[in-house]
């Protein structure tokens, strides 16, 4: 039930005063309420939980974390400790 998954906003519109968006998750799309992520634009990725976007994913932070994992790999390689 607590499941919350990342998806990409492909379109945004208003329904009775609420900001709604079509969000694509892999192959499927779903409507999500965007009232809690007023800063999120089309093309942005959001985390969606029970029909509500609860955060806009920070692309820079995501890159930074992935780079950290890469660097850890490079260090391990340099030390000859990569057990591949």
């Amino acid at each position: 039930m607590c499941l919350a998954v990342p998806g990409q906003i492909v379109e945004a519109h208003e329904v009775s005063g609420m900001r709604m968006g079509t969000v694509r998750f892999g192959g499927i799309t779903r409507e999500a309420n965007l009232d809690f992520v007023p800063e999120a634009q089309c093309g942005d990725y959001v985390i969606v939980h029970v029909g509500f976007a609860i955060s806009r994913l920070d692309a820079e932070e995501a890159e930074r974390t992935l780079r950290l994992f890469e660097e850890m790999g490079a260090l391990a390689d340099a030390a000859g400790e990569d057990d591949g």
Binding site: Q8, M72, G73, A76
Partner: peptide, 20 residues
């Protein structure tokens, strides 16, 4: 899927495990 697949990559997982 973006923001999912790259966080399931086995190579960095092995390195994190080694490091821990």
């Amino acid at each position: 899927m973006k923001y999912v697949d790259e966080y399931r990559d086995p190579a960095p997982a092995r390195r994190l495990i080694e490091e821990i």
